[in-house]
Structure formats: C-alpha cells, structure tokens
Amino acid sequence: MQRTSALMRIYAAAIGVLLIFPLAIVTAVSFDPGAYIAFPPSGFSFRWYVEMWSNETIVLAMKNSLIVGIASSAIGTVIAIPAALAIARGGAFAEKVLYPFLLSPFTIPWLVYGLALLFFWSVTGQPLSLGTIVLGHTVIAIPYVLRITLAVLRDMPPNYVRAARISGANPWQAFRYVILPYIRSGVVAGASFAFIVSFTNIPVSLFLTTADNITLPVAIFNYMINNFEPMVAAVSVVQVLMIVVILLITRKIGAVERG
C-alpha cells in the first residue's frame, strides 16, 4: 500500500471541506422543522421533504428538468459524435469552421445567449415550450460531449479503423464495432457533463421558462425570491441526489469492459 504524505492528507482534507461544507449546511437546514431558514437548525424533521411533493410547481419543474436534461444531452451527443469524427479526420472546414463554431457556446455568456434565444423565439413567433428549452440546452451540451469525445478519438491509433476496413468492415461497421466501443467512455462522460449542466442551468433557462415549462433551478430561484422556508434546501438536496443517481448510472454504462 502506498503511504500518503502528511501534506497530501491536509490537501485532501482542505478540498473535502471546501466541497462538502456548503452541501452540509444545506442538508442540515433542510431538516429544520421551522418556517424560516436558520443555522444552526431549530430541530430535526422530514417536514419539508414531505411538503415539497404537494407543491405543484416544484414537482412539475423536477419532471421538466429531467426531460430537458436527458433530451438535450442525448441530442447534443448525437450531433457531437459525427462532428468529432469529422474534426478528428482533420479536414480544413471541420477544423477551422465547424470546430470553433460548435465550441462557441463556451465563449458566449449564457445570460446573453438566453436573452438572444428569447428574442429569436419571439421574432419567429414560436411560443416558449419544453422544446425551445431543449433546443437551447442542446447547443450548450454539444461542446462538452465534443471536447471529451474528440480527445479520446485523437488518442485512438488510426490503424484501428484501417484494420477494421481492410478486414471487411464498411465505414458504418467500422464505426459501430471499433470506433464507438473505443470512444464510449468519453462519450458517456461528456453526455453526463452535459446533463448536469442542463439540470443545474439558470442563466439560459431563466429567459425561456414560463409557468408550464419551468425547470427546477428556475423554480428554486423563483421560490427563494418570495420565500425563506427550508423547503428550498430540501429540494436542493433532492436535486443533488438525482445528479448522484445519474452519475452512478452513467459510470456503469461508461465503464470499459474487463475480461
């Protein structure tokens, strides 16, 4: 077994505290039976974990966020994989035009992007819906999947595809049986990033949500403006748990086959 140096232990402890501390506070507050957020909590109860399920807005927002997160990361992945293949192949257009274009959501402030989308949909006369949010989140999902997939793809020896082709695989078979298994863990990692970004996104969603298509972060945000109840903490804890579940599932899908 490797010995961990004292410095490493202190470093790990500092990072751990930094990451867990805010979450610990929120979790502690979520069990407060009182009507106002207070720290330290005034007691312990599951009151807000029960009450949140009778709040129609919160329940609707959870459902919407799950739909938007899964749909946008899935569509973004379907768009990002062929783009990554084209860019890895190294054509001038793919590398100099397509790649920067697809990465541009990284560089535009999301608040500005959300506002621009609002203008866009109002000019086109398209009413805001879950679909318009999915489209907005898909655009910001693409660069996450693209970057990670491309990194794995560029790491792949070009002879794998050549070996597949010369052995009799057509381009689709080479993708299906050789490229896709090779990049799978990268694709899944990128897609789960994209899901989390969508699931926690406020700036883009803020401009695109109405009472019907409200997402969970926006619902929490709205709720906090008007209320100071510990329920918002309970909802946050549930949100974190949902992300943990998603990460565990994707880790299973993305694991490289052994044996």
Binding site: Y160, R162, A163, G168
Partner: peptide, 16 residues
C-alpha cells in the same frame, strides 16, 4: 479497402 480482398498485418498489430 473492404472490397479489395486483402488481408493486412500492421505495425504494432492494431488488435482491437
């Protein structure tokens, strides 16, 4: 390549 009826062994083998 897949329609040329060729077998090939690569440098470093390129086993999947």
């Amino acid at each position: 390549p897949e329609r040329r009826d060729i077998g090939m062994v690569f440098q470093n083998y390129a086993l999947f």
